[in-house]
Simulated scan of single mutants.
Amino acid sequence: MRADAVRNRERIVTQAVRLFAERGPDVPMCEIADAAGLGVGTLYRHFPDRRALALEIGIGALRDLAEFARAAREREESAWAELLAVIRHCATLPLALAKSLTALLPEDEEGAQAELEHTVDTLLADLVARAQREGTLRGDVPAAEVQQLLSTVICRPGARPDDYLTVVMLDGLRA
């Protein structure tokens, strides 16, 4: 893809995330194109419909999270520090928006997203298991329940690493 096409696609996605977060998933596509400073034709060349745009947002957020989680494993001293880094990073991603947008997709269009969700789930399961083995994360809470709790708390609108729900969750999980 040409450099200008890549930039246009990024502008579309950035503005779509902003507008969807501000006004919901029914923002007209022409307003997204206007906000990106592009024509509607350019938007539709990249994303033939709203579902394609929603899928791109969801896949982009999951891909970013997976890459960050892999890098955090190399960078952090402990699994607990790694978990905190991942949670902080999640607050920078449109995970709640991506989750709500892609929930509208038909099941047959979720292939790439489902694969990335599985990758992220696997990375988180490994992280939880390592934190439990090192004794920094409670061992009496099943890993699957920890993952569900993390997903619920960090994939909600307005989630931040320092908000009271996240802090209480982490305090309760800390060994």
Rank of each mutant, 00 (worst) to 15 (best):
M1Y: 00
A3C: 09
E10A: 11
R11P: 10
R11T: 03
Q15C: 14
R18M: 15
L19K: 12
F20I: 03
F20K: 13
A21P: 02
A21R: 15
A21H: 13
A21W: 10
R23G: 05
R23C: 08
G24C: 03
D26V: 13
M29G: 12
M29P: 02
C30Y: 04
A33Y: 01
A33G: 08
D34W: 11
L38V: 12
G39I: 14
V40D: 06
V40E: 11
G41T: 00
T42W: 04
Y44Q: 00
Y44G: 00
R45M: 03
R45F: 00
H46W: 06
F47Q: 07
R50N: 06
R50Y: 12
A52G: 08
L55W: 08
L55F: 04
I57T: 04
G60C: 14
A61G: 06
R63I: 13
E67Q: 02
E67F: 00
E67H: 04
A69M: 11
R73Q: 08
R73D: 15
E74R: 15
E77S: 15
W80S: 05
L83G: 02
L83F: 08
L84P: 02
L84R: 05
I87M: 04
I87E: 09
I87S: 14
R88V: 15
H89N: 01
P94R: 01
P94H: 01
A98H: 07
S100R: 12
T102P: 10
L104C: 13
L105G: 06
P106V: 15
P106S: 11
D108T: 15
E109L: 15
Q113W: 12
Q113A: 11
E115T: 12
L116E: 02
E117H: 09
T119R: 10
T119Y: 08
V120R: 04
D121C: 01
T122K: 11
L123G: 05
L127C: 07
R130P: 01
R130Y: 01
A131K: 11
G135C: 13
T136L: 08
L137R: 07
G139D: 01
V141H: 03
V141M: 10
V146N: 13
V146A: 09
Q147D: 13
Q147G: 07
L149C: 02
L150G: 12
A159R: 12
R160P: 07
P161H: 07
D162E: 14
D162R: 08
D163M: 05
L165R: 14
L165Y: 06
T166I: 07
V167K: 14
V168Y: 08
V168R: 13
L170K: 00
D171C: 06
G172N: 04
L173S: 10
R174G: 14
A175F: 01
